[in-house]
Amino acid sequence: MSLIDEDQALIASALKGSAYAWEKLVKRYELKIYNHGLRLTGNSSDAMDLMQEVFLGVYRNLHRFRGDAKFSSWIFRIAHNKAVDMNRRKRLMTSSPKFSTDDEGDEFEKFPGKKELEPEYRLGNIELNVRVLKMLSELSSDQRSIVELKVFQSLTFDEIAELQDISTNTAKTRFYSALKKLKVVSEKQNVLS
């Protein structure tokens, strides 16, 4: 049985009321969603909140999933929307300056300025992850989102374009701009270290 078929079977069982099937379905995707949230938000607390919201959204809308797309794409669409919502809420609550960007419609803020919320304080001694988070924190929200979808979720530019409601060319341009910025950040980090 393929992963997609397994997903379909689990969804059908969960819709019939099987808590076991629901738990298994969540376990299949929670690691990806949590790490996705971690890279987008930069701290484990927000990543946890995001993951819980995502699975609540999945639970509430499971009956609407028709199976014409992959479940993983569907769940990442929910995750993307929830991340945008969360960022809007946080932007309303905090008055931290918006990250300067040449792209319009900035969806994610730069990481919060408080020291205890900075990546290295949240992730302990995982140096590689801290380095990645530092690099991502230098990107605009749109760039960060597109890098996440392309590099970590391996989505195609067409899928990204559809998910973010932009053209494929815009997706390509944003991705390349993000990589150029990351190149500069990476070189700076190498010089400092």
Partner: peptide, 22 residues
């Protein structure tokens, strides 16, 4: 730019803290 992309791919998946999975 490929080196920068490679840097990103060094990400280590972090374990999910315990939660009740709704």
């Amino acid at each position: 730019v490929l080196l920068a992309q490679q840097d990103l791919q060094q990400w280590q998946e972090q374990r999910v803290p315990h939660w009740d999975r709704h």
